[in-house]
Simulated assay, not measured.
Amino acid sequence: MTPEKSEKRPTQDLDYEPVKKMEIPAEPEKSETSPPLAGKSPSFIAKVTNLVKLVESWPMVAHLIRATERFNDRMGNQFGAAITYFSFLSMIPILMVSFAAAGFVLASHPTLLQDIFNKILNNVSDPTLATTLKGTIKTAVEQRTTVGIVGLAIALYSGINWMGNLREAIRAQSRDVWERSAQDEEKIWVKYFRDFISLIGLLVALIITLSITSVAGSAQQMIISALYLDYIEWLKPAWRLIGLAISILANFLLFFWIFWRLPRHRPRKKALIRGTFIAAIGFEVIKIIMTYTLPSLVKSPSGAAFGSVLGLMAFFYFFARLTLFCAAWIATAQYKGDRRMPGKTHY
């Protein structure tokens, strides 16, 4: 009997050991199912990251990112503020020249001068303010030659410096390397002469732009009146769109001259045309916004004192930022088969 009992004990031990082995893996199953959200968060973040990378890989978005990075890395905001500062200072000698021109006109028309004095006395209730205005106008008439010559000289000097700052800011965005090279250094008389020629060219381009806009607007009104189309209401939006297109075309000519003439090297053709078109549309948007916001600023007493100054500074600032950003856009463009504009290239 003893041998049989001794043979059964190993079998019981063998039966008992598999039971322990089956119970052991039961605990890891609970631990695997306990944190259900831990596996989903990395996949969600990965999906968002892949989506962002996909959007950034689009050619237009990638181009926008490159232009923004260049604009920020090459101090586009600081250059824009500097251009705004010099633009505002340049207005002072321009006002001096305007006062001198008004003085020459009033000196040759004494009746008109007396009418202005009478309107001041009738419309200004404060006698001290009226006396001050009369004295200012009389001084402008008497010292018109001195004010005109001094104002013209200061305007020429400040205008050349303004053009130099605008040129350096656009060159900083346009050249391949941020630092200046030895070829970028110029003699001071060459620099001032070049900036003077560029200033004259910019004034000519600005006069052409304003002439196209004004002539198109007056011709449009003359055509409507000549054809007796004033009573047709649905034609007015069409004529406004035509006028808007003409204004954008005039802006295009102005910015095309800036981006083609001011950098030291000739930009690529497709990039220049597309970047100039963006600048023309942006500048028209700025003009429309300023047209509707400035009258509302002048209505309040504080706006009447500072609204025009703040509006003028905002206009210069947005113009400078738009110009420099479009210069960075043109410099970072990557179009297939895009050749440079004809002309001598400098680096």
Score class of each variant (00 low, 15 high):
Glu142Phe: 06
Thr146Tyr: 04
Ala102Leu: 15
Gly135Met: 14
Leu106Arg: 03
Ser125Val: 10
Ser108Asn: 13
Asn123Trp: 12
Leu106Lys: 08
Gln143His: 13
Thr111Leu: 09
Ala140Cys: 12
Asp126Cys: 05
Ala130Gln: 09
Lys134Glu: 07
Lys119Asp: 09
Glu142Val: 12
Asn123Phe: 09
Phe117Ile: 01
Ala107Asn: 11
Ala100Met: 05
Ala102Arg: 14
Thr139Asn: 13
Leu112Asn: 10
Val124Tyr: 02
Ala101Gly: 06
Thr136Lys: 06
Phe117Arg: 09
Gln114Trp: 03
Thr132Met: 07
Asn123Lys: 12
Ile137Glu: 01
Asp126Phe: 04
Asp115His: 12
Asp115Val: 12
Thr139Met: 09
Ala107Glu: 09
Leu106Asp: 03
Val124Pro: 03
Leu112His: 07
Thr146Pro: 00
Thr145Ile: 11
Ala100Gln: 03
Leu106Trp: 04
Thr145Pro: 01
Gln114Val: 04
Phe99Thr: 02
Val141Pro: 02
Val141Leu: 06
Val105Asn: 09
Asn122Glu: 09
Thr131Phe: 07
Ala130Tyr: 03
Leu121Ser: 12
Thr132Ala: 11
Thr145Phe: 14
Arg144Ser: 02
Leu121Thr: 08
Asn118Glu: 10
Leu106Gly: 03
Ser108Ile: 10
Ile116Pro: 01
Phe104Arg: 02
Ile120Asn: 01
Ala101Tyr: 12
Asp115Trp: 15
Thr131Ser: 15
Ser125Ala: 14
Ile116Lys: 04
Asp115Tyr: 09
Val141Thr: 10
Phe99Arg: 02
Thr146Glu: 14
Asp126Arg: 07
Leu121Glu: 10
Ser98His: 03
Gly135Ile: 04
Ile116Leu: 11
Leu133Ala: 13
Glu142Pro: 01
Lys138Asn: 11
Ile137Ser: 01
Ala102Met: 15
Gln114Gly: 05
Phe117Trp: 05
Phe104Gly: 08
Thr136Gly: 02
Ile120Phe: 00
Lys119Gln: 06
Ile116Trp: 00
Asp115Met: 14
Ala102Asn: 14
Thr131Gln: 10
Leu129Arg: 14
Ser98Gln: 07
Val141Ser: 06
Ser98Trp: 07
